[in-house]
Design a protein around this nucleic acid. Sequence first.
DNA 1: TCTGGTGTTTTGTGATCACAAAGCCTGCAT
DNA 2: ATGCAGGCTTTGTGATCACAAAACACCAGA
Lengths: 216, 216
Amino acid sequence: MPVRPTAEPPTGAAHDRVYRTLRTRIMHGELAPGAALTLRGIGKEFDVSMTPAREAVRRLVAEGALFLSTSGRVSTPELTNERIEELAALRALLEVELASRALPRAHMALIDRLQSINSNVAEMISKRDAVGYIRTNLEFHRTLYLRAQAPAMLAMAETVWLQLGPTMRALYGRLRRTEPPQNHRLIIAALKAGDEPGLRLAVRSDVTQGLRLLAG
Amino acid sequence: MPVRPTAEPPTGAAHDRVYRTLRTRIMHGELAPGAALTLRGIGKEFDVSMTPAREAVRRLVAEGALFLSTSGRVSTPELTNERIEELAALRALLEVELASRALPRAHMALIDRLQSINSNVAEMISKRDAVGYIRTNLEFHRTLYLRAQAPAMLAMAETVWLQLGPTMRALYGRLRRTEPPQNHRLIIAALKAGDEPGLRLAVRSDVTQGLRLLAG
DNA sequence: TCTGGTGTTTTGTGATCACAAAGCCTGCAT
DNA sequence: ATGCAGGCTTTGTGATCACAAAACACCAGA
């Protein structure tokens, strides 16, 4: 069918729906590193032709969320240790700045919200739910960074998250910890105290620690 | 034609050739902010059908190099002052880090090369060649940052350059200065002296100053 | 059992087409 | 002259198809 023959239930353009769904899947670690995708397979799953599937895949490749082999095959990326460390450094650089910019705007309502999200994070950890953990953890960070009023910077941080998605799955699927997120508590405490150096340190630690285990 | 019926002269895939050409054009400021593009027009210029034109455009939209209106029309972005300031802050953040990482690896051959490029920059300024100035200026920065051995970080910096391309054209087309790039000299001096704080400051100034004039 | 080659299938690429929606332009009425 | 309504044109979207190359499976020979 050409263009929206009848009114569709919720979504807009087909390629955008495919893109958003795949993006969320990758960012949340629902795909393992190196997982292969095919245009026809995607088209079949979303009940569209190859054209919108291709556009969605291209977009994700441009963002570094998918890897394109020389022969055109697409798969989730298998990152080298150097790459992982670099992306962790990027997270630190960007997210420390975002947190710092959010700090003067962080009111009590935001802190309450972060504490609420953080209890969900703890629940996911106790349930050993890797995907749920990644999702709620990113929600925690995004909620804070949204207060920074810096959309381009946040978009860039999300691009890094995207690139790390499959690797994070492999990481958190591997180590079986049950401790609640200590660094998140430090972040919240620093926000309450208006302690900028403490906030920067806490964010840097939170962002760096997990990935160092895998890459170190 | 389907796929490479006869051996082609230089290039690989059609969509990639279109993508790279457009990307260079945008990054170097050859397109004014708000300039409109059409898929059929691109296809005609590159002698391909709409399909590869669409893929190239999608990629560039994903990188923020092109703006997609709600009706699907594509044009180069017209940035708000807030957005320009944010992108300048991102440049500062990323490029200061890249320069810092390049510093311990910067040998004399690199410094010579930078000086050579910098004389080209000065020439472009004296010739009032806006596009040539942007191109050589970026070449100066990229040459330095390549030494940082941080491809993901460099890619992110280039994405910021891409987003600023049309705006930089508007900026440097407007102000008619003839002074040679003073900050580049400071960068080179700091590299020679192994002075990391001085290098960070010089890079931050160089990256920030021009855009502050437009956005301030 | 392993290796090499051959035929089949899968997969990405690009051209083309039909369709709808968004522009655009012209001309008429006030 | 100005505003608006009708059509005509331009433009993006998505489906489908042909084709080549890559991946795969299968089988025969050592």
